[in-house]
Nucleic acid binder design. Structure first.
Lengths: 186, 186
DNA sequence: GTCTATATAGGGATAGAC
DNA sequence: GTCTATCCCTATATAGAC
């Protein structure tokens, strides 16, 4: 099994169980690899697996969610593409955010800086789109933060209520909401 | 030590570490009680501790957050009081929501129904206030859901960014935002 | 690269003294 | 009601065969 494929199989474990709940048994079962095989790929064990998962997800996120924000399309289109890919990334909100899942307990001790950086990058690139849509930089930053808040909150709610409606509603309204009052929304 | 006091000391452990991360060692240390003392108060062990914590927090939440919503004050005042008490409850957003923390791994298996019920109650009582402010029932429900989304999302962001600003901003704007366009906001 | 076997520590839980 | 001591199980991690 390729390492990439192994990492892809590890992701849902950390997402669903958090760092402390992601036991080697669960990680082993999810990949189909024995413990020793996991240690062959990730000599430093569980912490290295989590690091690899975070890097993998960050790359995916950059390619599918952030990259569309950096294109030369008009702002509305860029935001719509982001939302479309977020919907896929989170399976209509049914999968929790890895950043939230690993932000408890030991996971927070180990990965706090990574989590912070990922959130800041996301907010920063979102704000940049809004600035390009002629929104005041300060307003743009507030709205970008609010976008991430809405997404994270909706993910929490969807998993709690077993109902994807709120996430899909947030995704549907987000682009226009972010650009509200912007000169150039077309 | 009284059982109430013991439960109060258990809360931050489940909040910060989640269910799987809330080990007996940590629970013991947080309460100052040995393992056997914990089992004296909670014969069924960790699961019973988590249940007690959830009930305790639900009572606190009902008394401090939901009860203000059921008073005869005007809607705006009711919502403002809720936000004020939420700010205290979450320590300006620095403490994560217990419902989010225990919604991973085994905690979800055990407490999914409780989490769901707590969220539904909160949303329902919020919506009721908006209905009394002459907002259409369907709109009221959507907005109530959005309020909980904003709160949960802000909690995730604040802990990730180490900055309470977003939570405080959400709290500050929430009451007026929920009543936007309502006939009777005074 | 994957396996079996094993080492060591910590997990949850219980018995019984005080 | 709290303690010490102990049980069994699972956790992470490693060694070495194939």
């Amino acid at each position: 099994m390729s390492k990439e494929k192994a990492i892809a199989n590890l992701i849902p474990v950390f997402r669903r169980y958090g760092y402390e709940g992601a036991t080697l048994s669960r990680l082993s079962q999810a990949t189909g690899l024995g413990r020793s095989s996991l240690y062959h790929h990730f000599p430093k064990g569980k912490e290295e697996m989590a690091t690899a998962v975070l890097e993998y997800v960050n790359r995916w996120f950059d390619r599918k969610v952030l990259a569309p924000l950096r294109t030369s399309n008009d702002p509305l289109q860029r935001l719509q593409l982001m939302c479309q890919n977020l919907n896929e990334f989170y399976h209509q909100g049914q999968e929790s955010c890895l950043l939230n899942a690993i932000s408890f307990g030991e996971g927070d001790d180990l990965f706090h800086a990574s989590i912070k950086q990922a959130l800041k990058t996301w907010i920063g690139e979102l704000a940049q789109v809004l600035v390009e849509a002629a929104i005041e930089p300060e307003v743009a930053h507030s709205r970008a933060e609010e976008a991430v808040i809405l997404i994270q909150g909706a993910l929490v709610l969807v998993r709690g209520l077993d109902d994807t409606a709120s996430f899909e509603r947030v995704m549907a309204h987000l682009p226009e909401r972010l650009l509200e009052g912007a000169a150039q929304t077309k």
